[in-house]
Amino acid sequence: MAERIRRERTTHAVEQVETTELTTPRAATIDYDALLDEIDEVLQGNAEDYVRSFVQKGGQ
């Protein structure tokens, strides 16, 4: 049977500041801005054509 990898959850030191407004997402661990820098090419291409050309047959 499979075994689960055991590791401490990576939790950035998120201050226990109460967030009252949800306008800005507060991720526990994900640095979205750094991530967006890395994937700039995905954001700059012709997204319209890319999305439209992904046509699937309906399935189950």
Binding site: R9, T10, T11, P25, R26, A27, A28, T29, I30, Y32, D33, L35, L36, L43
Partner: peptide, 22 residues
Amino acid sequence: DRCADRLDWVAKRGLIQAAAAR
């Protein structure tokens, strides 16, 4: 958002919101 490190929809929504803002 505390589940952004484990659950698909939470992490994806965070990414989409950050991209939409940028």
